[in-house]
Design a protein around this nucleic acid. Sequence first.
RNA 1: GGCGCAUUGGUCAAGAGGUCAAGACGUCGCCCUCUCACGGCGGAAUCCAGGGUUCGAUUCCCUGAUGCGCUACCA
Length: 557
Amino acid sequence: MNNIELADLIYPSLPHTPEEYEAMYPARDLPAGAKVTRLGPSPTGFIHLGNLYGAFVDERLAHQSGGTFFLRIEDTDDKRFVENAVEIIISSLAFFGINFDEGVTENGDIGTYGDYTQSHRGEIYRTFAKRLLEQGLAYPCFLSEDEISAIREQQEAAKTSPGIYAGWSKYRDWDKDPAVAAEVESKIRAGEPFVIRLKSHGVPNASAEETARHTVIDAIRGELSVPDNFQDVVIIKQTGIPTYHFAHVVDDHLMRTTHVVRGEEWLPSLPIHIELFEDLGWDLPVYCHTAQLMKIGEDGNKRKLSKRKDPELSLDFYRSQGYHPAAVREYLLTILNSNYEEWRLANPDAPTDDFDFTTEKMSSSGALFDLDKLNDVSKSTLLRIDAAELAGWLRSWSEEFAPEYSYVFRDMDHLAAILDLGRHDARPRADLVYARQIMEYIGYFFDEAFRIEDEYPAEAAADKDVILRSYLESYDHSDDNEQWFGKIRELAVDLGYAAKPKDFKKHPEEYKGHVGHVSTVIRIALMGRATSPDVWAIQQIMGEQTVRSRISAQIDC
RNA sequence: GGCGCAUUGGUCAAGAGGUCAAGACGUCGCCCUCUCACGGCGGAAUCCAGGGUUCGAUUCCCUGAUGCGCUACCA
């Protein structure tokens, strides 16, 4: 039995040849420099900030260059499949503005380079595995789990590299020993399970000097010196499904991906991929190995974002807290490209897509997620969103995540006016951060949420009723801001308070307090809080009736 | 254990063999001010360690430390 016969025995009938697949998926007709990128999530139904981070890189690279960005579902791990996962992935990404040109959608595949779901591509993988078998570049391996762990123990005892490679699986050189060849043949005919392994041409356990190396240019990290692979990695599992390594190489070649963006955890397996591309006679894509997003763990150390331990870093966290997608996008861009903030400062109103994103400006060390920074970015991002639009967005957020706030949305014009408070001043207020915070922040406008939260200031507490009563008497809703505050000042002076805080600071013994203490009494009666935006502006939005009733309610006698 | 990647203030970071080592967030103080926010000004705070190379190294090289990752028929 020779290689060809073995390959035929394993895969007797396949509908197409490798050459036919090459012809079916020809080089893409795209303008020069156009990049083709892809996102290949596993359908676990869970997508976190780190995934989004990578997805932005893919998206920007493709769309900035007039290329194509497609979605491929990498479901080669049958144990991890979650129902509806694909829908969740697509909708989560779409929510944050990540849209695909091609690949899997809710309504089937789009594009001519599919199928875009790996579990549907079995014949394709088998076709190329067969080619490798024919060329003696792969072999069927019948080692059982027990045998493999026995090998591992031996290797550990001998302090040599673990794994299956030259010298460890007798099936590797089946054709050198007629007995093994016969065994292989009969086992295949008997239908015994086996995997297909790459027959690596690398030299096992070579010294550093002897190890052949490949120079690869990583678009983020620059020149990489990659050692030769020598591991006979599994390319087709017992189930007939390919491993990530093989699926990556076959798919990204056939789908004509030009740039492979993936996490740095893939760096160690790059040698395998290089060998596979070489064996199949294909060109390497441009690799972009991104740094991992980290967070501070309970032990105070940096660690990679984890799906299990960091549910607050799942995209759902941001959605349920009500972070605006534009803010998350803006934040991610600031950590993705070190010159983004600078650009944003110079172009405060430009659409984010105008920014010239480059992989060279990406950091190769992992960044710590920084909620303070997100909040800061969010404030200025929200400032750029029209109040009516913001109100609508808040309503849909509330419907999905916080129906208890439905009272906020009874009058959308009223809400827009509230949100716009102080936003168009020469120095606009930046109070709004995320939906939950906004609900709390504007709560006092609504009787459902209004309550007295703060203490009346000690300096004026004794005069509270007097102040409120006189305020009510002199109140004229049609006063402008200046007239209104003039009256407060008058009232303060009449009662023995300084007209200006500075006067009080200079001669505290001469006054009970200053005008600020008096206005705080009014502020608390109206808003329940000692701090708020401009009282006059708030009153104009609240309406005279509410103003009068709230003040009256706070007069005890 | 082996291998890979990384290492500039609390965080994100720019940076070049000679710089007063940018900037942003946070923090502290002051100013503006009826409170808060905004804004302005200012402060504290950084080149992981040790060896080389060099007139000079945070920058180049080596070693180590630390962190992260990989070492699956997971991705």
